[in-house]
Nucleic acid binder design. Structure first.
Length: 557
DNA sequence: GCCGTTTTCGGCCCGACTGTTTTCAGTCG
């Protein structure tokens, strides 16, 4: 089992214990262990071989025994026993927004419902509103939540599917008879949610490719095998398709399979793909078709073909353009690492500056900073900055935007900081007008530099709050406030569409990791992908700028 | 269930909002 799989089982154990109303601290212990393992740099199987599972922070005797059992047998009896008591379908009910373990318990105990399908039926038959403590609103909320889940059913985030796809691609490339391999489809275009993993390989030896895939440890099943295509399921129930072509066909098919369908139809109009055989790069294929190379992230037929014809394609931002990360949490709030550890990790990434932006006092659960702790933290940052000049740590905060658009710190406090990210963490359900007004109010605040995760969406879990984007962009432009592209794969907020709109309005963006652990810093690659899908160039993104220019921008108002 | 110790038990992340109630339980960040 992989680190991720072990972590997943521990998380499910925590959920099951919660539904059983077990000791909350025990539940948290399982979640803590899961999070640590999820972010572990070492392979957990290697640790097991060295008998070092017990050294993992948060893993004591009980969890250690369960992990070892999983690694040795692939199973966990404790988990299986819990599943006998609370079926998987009941566990899935927890993913409905607003439905927690108590509600799940009430539904399961009173109606004996064991699956989402049965739940939908019961809700539509108005059985939910009759249950103790539940009512019409909860019933409505369940129906809406189930609709949302159905929509994203079977779709995996970029952050989950990309590493799995990269591993499979590299595995295939290790075969002598495979000369080229590439991730294709919506994953290569960088869509935040993908239905499957598609990989194109060049090989004349289909049986060898088939054998190689069937012995891949990450394969759950192979459902179909034709002379040019093998498909089935990978870990986490993700569908995969490996498309096999001869070397001569590789580059035309790279274009064809990367899509999107609309882009492909436009590009390949009246062209027989066989006439493109033998070309040696994707660029050559595009050129042959009369276009310059079009980056994969743009291939959605949303203007890129016209832009290509007019030679007006953007020079898209790349990871190496980033000079820093402007939204990072440390152990001063809910981050896992000390500022000096984060500094060291960011130095390794080659950053010139970073901003420590811990939560503020309105978020007490995260250990949010009050005025005193903020000023104590500033002293620590000053000391670290005076130690070396290789990297500059900016003093910042992720302040809360209160219900009325006010910020939860006074101007004199915010004035002391180099950078202020302002985010919403409460009152998600304000109506569109009030929510929009609230954000605009925050944008107008003197010391605000960046609005964090503007829409609050959580992919596969929660829609963003209701906002009217145009007046927000107008206000941001007028007040020199940047919008964050939050790189966490569950967020990717703002999305590519808004990013592109922001650019049209002259609004700058900041691509941030929102890291809570040094292992999260690399998630910024997904933010860059998202920015590329939004047609952004380095100039549009303030953390590609040189330090002095950035500081000047942040000082402003 | 984990951790740490003035070592084997006591502490561990809290407060606001929502929907159900009619004073509070449940959910969320």
């Amino acid at each position: 089992m992989t680190n991720r799989e072990v972590a997943q089982v521990l998380l499910k154990i925590a959920d099951l214990l919660e539904i059983k109303d077990d000791n909350p601290f025990k539940i948290r212990a399982y979640r803590n262990a899961a999070n640590t393992i999820f972010r572990l740099e070492e392979n957990i199987n290697d640790l097991h071989r060295l008998d070092r599972i017990g050294n993992i922070p948060g893993v004591g005797k009980a969890v250690k025994a369960k992990i070892e059992e999983m690694l040795e047998t692939g199973k966990c009896q404790f988990y299986q026993r819990l599943l006998d008591e609370v079926p998987e379908g009941v566990l899935q009910m927890l993913s409905i927004p607003g439905v927690g373990h108590k509600t799940v318990r009430t539904i399961y105990d009173n109606l004996g419902i064991r699956s989402l399908k049965e739940l939908e039926k019961a809700a539509k038959e108005h059985q939910i509103r009759e249950l103790p403590g539940l009512g019409r609103k909860t019933e409505h909320n369940i129906i809406k939540g189930l609709e949302m889940l159905a929509k994203s059913a079977g779709k995996a985030t970029l952050g989950l599917s990309m590493p799995i796809a990269e591993e499979l691609k590299d595995y295939l490339l290790s075969l002598d008879t495979v000369s080229h391999a590439s991730i294709v489809g919506s994953l290569r275009r960088g869509k935040p949610l993908v239905g499957d993993i598609d990989i194109l390989v060049a090989s004349d030896d289909f049986p060898a490719v088939y054998n190689k895939i069937s012995s891949y440890p990450g394969i759950v099943s192979i459902d179909r095998a034709q002379p040019d295509c093998i498909s089935g399921k990978l870990l986490y129930n993700i569908d995969f398709e490996v498309i096999v072509v001869g070397l001569d066909d590789y580059y035309p098919y790279l274009l064809w399979t990367t899509g999107s369908k609309a882009h492909r139809q436009e590009i390949f109009q009246n062209v027989d793909i066989k006439s493109l055989q033998g070309l040696l790069s994707e660029e050559q294929v595009y050129n042959q078709l009369g276009y310059p190379f079009i980056p994969a992230e743009l291939r959605e037929n949303t203007g890129e073909i016209e832009a290509a014809k007019d030679d007006k394609l953007p020079i898209l931002i790349e990871c190496q353009d980033l000079r820093g990360d402007l939204h990072i949490h440390s152990s001063w709030s809910d981050g896992a690492m000390k500022i000096e550890e984060l500094k060291a990790a960011c130095l390794e990434l080659g950053y010139e500056y970073i901003a420590v932006t811990d939560h503020s006092k309105s978020l007490p659960i995260s250990g949010g900073l009050n005025e005193e702790r903020l000023s104590a933290q500033a002293k620590v940052v000053d000391a670290l900055n005076s130690e070396s000049e290789e990297i500059t740590i900016l003093k910042g905060i992720e302040a809360d935007i209160l219900k009325d658009g006010q910020i939860d710190f006074d101007d004199e406090v915010l004035n002391q900081l180099d950078i202020v990210v302002a985010s919403i963490h409460s009152n998600f359900k304000l109506d569109k007008e009030k929510q929009t007004e609230r954000i605009i109010q925050a944008i107008k605040e003197k010391n605000i530099n960046i609005i964090g995760h503007l829409t609050g969406r959580l992919l596969n879990r929660r829609k963003g709050y209701e906002i009217d984007i145009e007046p927000i962009l107008e206000a941001a432009e007028k007040n020199r406030v940047a919008l964050e592209i939050n790189s966490h794969p569950d967020r990717l907020d703002i999305d590519a569409e808004i990013a592109r709109q922001a650019k049209e309005y002259g609004v700058k963006t900041a691509i941030n990791s929102d890291a809570h652990h040094k292992a999260d810093l690399h998630l910024i690659r997904y933010g860059v992908t998202n920015a590329r899908r939004g047609w952004l160039e380095p100039e549009d993104v303030i953390n590609t700028w040189e330090k002095d220019r950035l500081l000047d921008y942040l000082r402003k108002k």
